[in-house]
């Protein structure tokens, strides 16, 4: 599980450098996201553009990352591939997360999304 991050003013962009978040790596993803949000600024944006496949354990790990964020923090998602978008849509999790078309527009948008 490789997560890269880059810090901007009041925002941290985390890029998932894996093409699958599944039962193999879900727990590790959750733990590493916890570290990145704990030490992160008020906005954390998760760039999922490289993720081609997300199963229920991967979805659970992304939800766990949202629940583990600090109270004053937002965790937003960017660049969901169709198979990943389908999983969020079927479970209605697309109504829970702020989802941006891509990381560039996410970083350009003002920090009022929840």
């Amino acid at each position: 599980m490789k997560l890269n991050h880059k810090d901007f003013d009041n925002a941290r962009l985390v890029t998932i450098c894996e093409n699958r978040i599944d039962a193999v790596c879900a727990i590790q993803f959750k733990d590493e996201m916890r570290t990145l949000t704990d030490a992160g600024p008020s906005r954390v944006v998760l760039d999922m553009s490289q993720v081609e496949f997300l199963d229920s354990s991967g979805l659970g790990a992304v939800v766990a990352a949202l629940k583990a964020k600090k109270a004053e923090q937002t965790l937003e998602l960017a660049s969901l591939q169709p198979a990943v978008q389908k999983v969020f849509h079927l479970t209605r999790m697309d109504t829970v997360f702020a989802i941006h078309d891509d990381a560039t527009s996410a970083m350009a948008s003002i920090a009022d999304a929840s």
Partner: peptide, 8 residues
Amino acid sequence: DLPEGGFG
């Protein structure tokens, strides 16, 4: 209170 499992 969001569920983290049971989606499968």
